[in-house]
Design a protein around this nucleic acid. Structure first.
Lengths: 358, 358
DNA sequence: CTGAAAGCGCTTACAG
DNA sequence: CTGAAAGCGCTTACAG
């Protein structure tokens, strides 16, 4: 039966294929899904019939019958959190991994409040959910738990009991950043960290953990922690530049934790007559390579392992969907990429290492 | 009947609701969809039953029965074309508009070749498609036509017969850009335009149309067209900066048509000792406000009307889906936003306007 | 205003 | 290896 859909086009169904090949629709289904042994001759007949009719399996019907849609939703608060270069890496890598496993990954622009999520998920449209931009006490995690749908996090909450997640190792990331500056002789190292003022960034995992790591290190190495706040915008980075000059807090190096703000900071410092890295070393954590080259000078960064973490996040979810043993949570530190925005501290008295006479 | 799904959770169906409320499932459906008159008392009983059972309509079943999923797919070649600030505006605005009309918009990271599209669409999963990053002879448009699925373009092909589209008015955009520079006294205006070398940017509409507009204007105003190519990366903008210095082509102003490259260009020029705007005016077309402030000095731009075009694109598609009269195609020019990267040409002999003595 | 029933296009035990 | 049939959870003429 060639049916007419709403759109008035003619679509071949399994029934048509079965009829044409002289078999039952069950057998067609077995061939389409490769789910049961079928003799080569039968298979050939069916495949020929499919080709002639231009058969295309209706995934909605399949989903209803099998109770699986093979769609996973990547929840990203597009409207609230900017999707910068490093987020983009997570997303593209996740999409690729899903696609390789014959799943669709769709990006769902849902807000950080759990309500909207509940309305969308749990309607049977997606088999599982991947959550990004996680807060320490994330309403969406509670919502997903209540909906009882498989999910995994890229990021993590405070209490991770029973959760599947992959995340950046913020401790090691910050260690790496401070180490780099320390070796260059810096002892007055400021952290410019995302502000948690806005509702959608309250308890935002990366900010909280980076700040905690920074304070821990300051304590360990016995230097005075200095923190300024920025938002996720270029403009806010420029404001920080101004503030740095005005407040003259004595920092010789800055670690900044937002890509866009980092670019604004560099531009703003230049505007204020502060030379980077001669007057001030600046480096950025959890940023992408691309953003680094937007700045002048190109930014020293600790780059997040977006590709790997995106892949691992999807894999963690797929294991749930396929009833396999859960994956061990993964933390990955970033990679130090030294460029031109950081330099040895000029003041001689702080210099520790002597240059060899060449 | 409370059914157990794959996930071993208990989900209430319309049947359960009907039973509990003592009505037929048809009546429940009428209430859920508000599709037929139901007496207030019956409705109340049904609503109570739904609340008690935590009923949530299964959208997959609805989709199969009604032959409509209320999902529209936004096709964006995420893996090939960077999603910059201005693309982001299109997407978020489109998502918002869809959501307001009770549709889901999902972002589908599909490549520019038509094959992958055919595999995904036409399986009954989406009611319609919104295409972005359109090339003049776009394989995906052919694929969609063959699939006979409603679709609209953000962007447009060469031959737009019978197509619903919204797009940037590249002619007026370029007029605006050149006008601005012209009024500042510039007569040697170079265009730095995206390269079409890569397969996925072959005949990419914006590049082709911007270049054509530029050549038209050069002809009209009788100046020598100069064109350099860049890619969609910061690094390529830096290369252009180098090339500009090396080739010394005499341009006093540059119009650049890629956000990321624009940032690289500015950074690169600074590195080469070219002062912007004193030595060279630079402006960017079809870029976002945010990117403008990444640069130092902040970039003069002709900003694309992303919000409006994203909304209109969805509306065009929704009209098809709802069987309304098609929308007239829309072209919108960008807005000139003057910042600090363009200035009056210093050379006196080219200066046309006299400053009033103040 | 409400209900009984057919049907959406598949999957999947179950039987042979 | 293949088929007949029940069922996925809804929508929607049709009848009353």
């Amino acid at each position: 039966m060639l049916i007419r859909t709403r759109r008035d086009d003619v679509v071949a169904t399994m029934r048509d294929v079965a009829q044409r090949a002289g078999v039952s629709i069950a057998t067609v289904s077995f061939v389409v899904n490769d789910s049961k042994r079928v003799t080569p001759e039968t298979r050939k007949r069916i495949e020929a019939a499919m080709a002639e009719l231009g058969f295309r399996r209706n995934v909605v019907a399949r989903a209803l019958a099998s109770r699986r849609t093979r769609i996973i939703a990547l929840i990203y608060p597009v409207l609230e959190h900017r999707m910068g270069g490093s987020s983009m890496e997570f997303v593209t890598s996740a999409a690729q991994t899903a696609s390789d496993a014959d799943y669709h990954l769709v990006v769902w622009p849902v807000s950080t409040d759990g309500h909207e999520l509940s309305a969308l998920v749990g309607q049977g449209l997606v088999d599982g959910v991947l959550l990004m931009e996680v807060q320490l006490d994330d309403a969406r995690v509670d919502a997903l738990r209540k909906l009882d749908i498989p999910f995994a996090l890229i990021g993590r909450t405070q209490d991770v009991t029973g959760l599947d997640y992959v995340d950046i190792d913020f401790d090691i990331t910050m260690d790496t950043a401070v180490d780099h500056l320390w070796e260059l002789g810096h002892r007055s190292i400021m952290l410019v960290c995302g502000s948690q003022d806005e509702e959608s960034f309250k308890n935002y995992g990366p900010y909280v953990r980076l700040e905690a790591a920074y304070r821990r290190i300051a304590n360990e190495r016995d230097f005075q922690p200095m923190i300024m706040r920025c938002r996720q915008t270029v403009a806010s980075g420029r404001r920080v530049a101004q503030q740095l000059v005005t407040e003259a807090c004595g920092a010789t190096a800055v670690i900044i934790a937002d890509e866009a703000a980092a670019a604004g900071l560099i531009a703003g410092l230049h505007g204020q007559g502060v030379r980077v890295p001669m007057d001030l070393s600046v480096m950025s954590v959890i940023s992408s390579k691309d953003m680094a080259f937007i700045c002048d000078p190109p930014l020293t960064t600790v780059t997040a392992a977006g590709i790997e973490l995106g892949r691992l996040g999807v894999e963690a979810l797929l294991r749930q969907l396929q009833g396999e043993a859960p994956m061990r949570p993964v933390l990955r530190a970033g990679t130090l990429e030294i460029r031109d925005s950081t330099a040895r501290l000029a003041t001689p008295k702080v210099r520790r290492t002597k240059k060899p006479v060449s």
